[in-house]
Each structure stands twice: as C-alpha cells, then as structure tokens.
C-alpha cells in the first residue's frame, strides 16, 4: 500500500477512530493523540494492509487495543487529573447548543458502563455497525455481542430513569 492508497483508504477513518477513542478515554486531547498513534501503527504495517479483509475493522481493533492499554496504564495515578479534565470538558460540552442536561446524562450513563459494553453500544448506536462487524472488532461471537448490547442498552435506560426520578424528587 502506498501513500496514495493510505490517504484514500485509511485516512478517512480518522473521525470514526477519534469518536471511538474519545468514548473510551473521555478526553479530547488524548483521543486526538490516539488517532495519530493508530495511523502510525497502520502505516508501519502498510505492506501487509492489503491482506486484510476490512481495513476499517483493523483500524478499530487497533484503536480498541491502544485505548485499553492507555486505560490500564492510567487507572490509578491519573484519576484525579482525569476527573478535573473531564469536568473541564463537561463545561465545554454544556455550551454546545444541542446538548441539554438530559443528553449529557446519556453520555454519563454510557461512561458508567464497563469498557466492553461501552464499546459495543458505541459501535452499534453511534457508528451503526452490523453485529458481525462488532463481533470482529471485539473478538466475540455475534450472539454474545447481541446479548451484551441488549444488556448495555437496558442498563443505560435504567440509569436514565433513575436519574429522572431523582431529579423530580
């Protein structure tokens, strides 16, 4: 794969990679950084890229793995900094015209999910992936994905209903 192919086939995935990374890392700056890292990884393997069935799946798998690595490395020491950072980002998002409190509530509900169900909901409800594609990215059976997706959606609904009740009390 040459630079032209790379630019036309891999580069357009940048938004999807960015959204996926931001969903997992909850930080814009780190997600921006991760997009570059994914591209670097893909470019390093450019000789083999043609062999893959789906470049998009490969990009998403790479994103998933890099995100999980970062989350694992981060877990303990950066927690407080993280909270601060996400608070700043919350404020930034609140100023977005199309984001009401209720919509931010959905985001929080999603962020409260564990890594794997969060990824599944993201890939399905935001990126519109087929269950089979999600199964490829997650390294799961299609049926397992469906069960996890159903459970995660119900969990989000539950959190939102609880929040709503809490607000009216």
């Amino acid at each position: 794969m040459n630079l032209q192919d790379f630019n036309s086939k891999v580069y357009p995935l940048k938004d999807k990679i960015f959204r996926f990374a931001k969903r997992m890392l909850e930080q814009t700056e780190e997600a921006e950084d991760l997009v570059q890292e994914v591209f670097i990884r893909m470019w390093k393997h450019r000789e083999k890229l043609d062999e893959y069935r789906s470049l998009e799946a490969l990009a998403m798998i790479t994103t998933k793995n890099l995100c999980l690595d970062r989350l694992k490395a981060r877990k303990f020491p950066v927690e407080s900094w993280n909270a601060q950072q996400s608070f700043i980002e919350m404020i930034a998002e609140e100023t977005r015209p199309d984001h009401s409190d209720l919509i931010l509530g959905v985001k929080e509900a999603m962020n409260s999910l564990a890594e794997s169900p969060r990824m599944i909901v993201h890939l399905r409800d935001i990126e519109g992936y087929e269950l089979g594609e999600i199964a490829d990215v997650m390294g799961m059976q299609e049926n397992t994905v469906r069960v996890a997706l159903s459970r995660a959606r119900k969990r989000i609904r539950e959190i939102l209903i609880n929040n709503e009740n809490y607000e009216y009390q």
Binding site: K14, D15, F18, R19, K22, E32, D33, V35, Q36, D98, H99, S100, L102, I103, G105, V106, K107, D125, I126, E127, G128, I156, R157, L160, I161, E164
Partner: peptide
Amino acid sequence: QYQPMFSFFKSEASLSLSDEQQEKVLER
C-alpha cells in the same frame, strides 16, 4: 424519556476530528 438517548447518538455520530486538531497533535 427515550428522546435524550437517541438525540445523543445522533449528535455524537457527527463529531469529527478537524484538520486543526490534527495539526496540533502533530506539533505535540
């Protein structure tokens, strides 16, 4: 009660990485 959920999905799907952001990352 289901509206926030679906409007969130819709608005999140339009999130994109601008060229400026990319340049910033490259500089960093």
